[in-house]
Design a protein around this nucleic acid. Structure first.
Lengths: 349, 349
DNA sequence: GTAGGAATTGCAAACGTTTGCAAGAAACTC
DNA sequence: GAGTTTCTTGCAAACGTTTGCAATTCCTAC
């Protein structure tokens, strides 16, 4: 049987003083005499006293937890994003003594209803929202309810007074275009997926803006989108794109998993990378370093972003009425082997 | 300002009955009249009542949370294990209404002290322990303290009355040997790391046992171990192994990341895989499918194991005095391109 | 009509903490 | 030495639940 941990009452009786004084002494309250404080601290250490969080929460109204709803995933969806994100988030929160609370939605249950439960039951003082969608019902609920939260990603409505940290993937996509343009590429492809997450739009917009900014009429852009994140569907879309008579010489994948499938599609279509085709991704997943010839991509810095999000959330929880916090972080271009000069000959013009 | 969620008191006043009755009605206690129960249920729904977990925990002594201490990681350590594991664990727990609680250790802090805090503060009713080491101080503490816990992995002491689920990687390593032996290989290498985690021993032992069982004196096994999980150190160890005069024709990596570095080392040493060298790993990380020629490995089924661990933990929490639960799951061989017949000629004998 | 029992409800304590207020002790001021 | 201030401590309420026990009401049986 597990022995109960010590309580304030036990300490107080042992020291012959009141519970209140013990509590204040441990809290470092300056009204308690220095000598008393030391006695209490010593006894607490000796007893291995650790305050009961439930009792503390009950009176303070604060749980000391930040909440995170685990995204619902297909049976075989695998990536390192979640692990990196949670590691970083934990690091950012623990600096301020806040712990992380994870809720999972059950099969039939919406993420919103889980979120509602987490908040209403007082399990979390604030939450982190990832995979932000266009009309995100979670965000709508949190705003209405006045719950502190920070998003990883942005809404399309730039003026919404909500706190977020986003990777500036739009600019990154523009940067990718610039680099490829300078290498002589004029015919571009973007392999996307139809999804309600906002980053899809932001990336496509960033790419189009960079193209427009360049002001070269000979630049073409073809966008193909698979109906969902499905290996087969994406491979098909890629195959179709690469076998067109005027196929692109440079293809950007919406994120690395897509770009890796572009590499696969290229091999299947008999195209050599980077000689016949340049490919660029986004995220820098581990596999990008292993897939030949090495995927040129952007490192999103998930872990450090998450760390910063943790800190932002603490700040949002502490000063509710302040202006929202918004941060855009710059992803870093990782040059590997999948980009190169545009091929010469009939393919180009 | 966030509006407070409804409480039992509010419901009771609204219905003109006592708090106790409301509580019992919602708990489905049969002593409350059917009619009353319905009225209460309706009012609770109307008010969006969600019980306060802190209050409930305070009286029940149960937090309703399972704890997990995030492993301390180097700045750039990346894999998908954590994400998969947490996803599965959440799935296993949520079936029983238990939520997951994540604690992070701060830079200078030992994992044990975090664990202690989590337990003593009543944050978690039970915990999951991963990366089991030989003389694991966390396990010692939990046993002594009588805290319910389940390990992912085993202790070397097979008779210890603790609950665990482990992937039978020892048998898998034996299986890998059998397959390679049947392909004609006789000279084997194992690339390991010196680490206090128990799986290292279990895998090596499984391999040695399979070799002994085969009873062929011409089989040789060379084990090299890098001092820690460090890219450079492993690459060096691999390079040394592969340039020996009597180099192995088949190399097994302790886990996929190691095996991937073996592939890299082979390329550097001018060896073709699988013609000159067969390589087998363990884990089936995403990159294994992308690194040419595709790493032959074992799928550890992390997510489903974690799901089962969640269920086991619930069971351990519910019947503390029962015999420990122990499960060995069989990993699945994933055949890709990195294994093949043993090369002929002077290299073989 | 009354005793006995069953069904339903309420009272109040308990869980372990924090904190406003008041009380006591000590130290100063004149 | 009385009045005042400053330190230090204790009392008790509060947070929102659950639950043992007592109280009330309503039947049923004789």
């Amino acid at each position: 049987m597990a022995q109960r941990s010590s309580t304030l009452k036990v300490l107080a009786e042992h020291l012959g003083i009141s519970i209140a004084t013990v509590s204040r002494a441990l809290a470092g309250n300056p009204t308690v005499a220095e000598q008393t404080r030391e006695r209490v601290a010593k006894a607490a250490r000796a007893h291995g006293y650790v305050p009961n969080v439930a009792a503390r929460q009950l009176v303070s109204g604060r749980s000391g937890f930040a909440g995170f709803i685990l995204p619902v995933r297909g049976p075989s969806f695998v990536d390192s994003y979640l692990g990196e994100f949670l590691t970083g988030l934990g690091e950012g929160l623990v600096e301020h003594g806040v712990d992380l609370f994870l809720a999972t939605s059950q099969p039939g249950q919406s993420e919103l209803s889980v979120l509602r439960h987490v908040i209403e039951s007082g399990r979390a003082d604030g939450v982190v929202v990832t995979r932000v969608a266009e009309d995100d019902e979670r965000v709508a609920y949190l705003r209405k309810r006045g719950v502190p939260f920070v998003m990883h990603g942005r809404l399309l409505d730039e003026d919404a007074p909500v706190s977020w940290l986003d990777t500036d993937s739009g600019t990154a996509f523009g940067e990718a275009f610039e680099m490829l343009y300078d290498l002589g590429h004029r015919r571009f492809g973007l392999v996307s997926i139809t999804d309600r997450m906002t980053f899809r739009h932001l990336r496509e917009r960033g790419l189009r803006q960079a193209i427009a900014r360049r002001g070269d009429d000979t630049v073409e852009l073809e966008v193909v989108a698979a109906p969902r994140f499905d290996r087969g569907a994406i491979v098909d879309a890629v195959g179709e794109l690469l076998t067109r008579p005027r196929r692109p010489t440079a293809v950007i994948g919406l994120f690395d998993e897509v770009a890796l499938l572009v590499l696969e599609g290229a091999a299947r279509a008999g195209l050599k990378v980077p000689e016949d085709l340049s490919v660029v991704g986004f995220d820098n997943v581990a596999a990008s370093g292993y897939a030949p010839p090495g995927l040129t991509t952007f490192d999103a810095g998930t872990r450090s972003s998450a760390r910063e999000i943790g800190r932002m959330l603490i700040s949002v929880i502490d000063n509710r009425n302040e202006a929202p916090l918004q941060r855009l972080v710059r992803p870093e271009l990782v040059l590997r082997g999948s980009h190169g000069p545009a091929p010469f000959g009939p393919l180009v013009r």
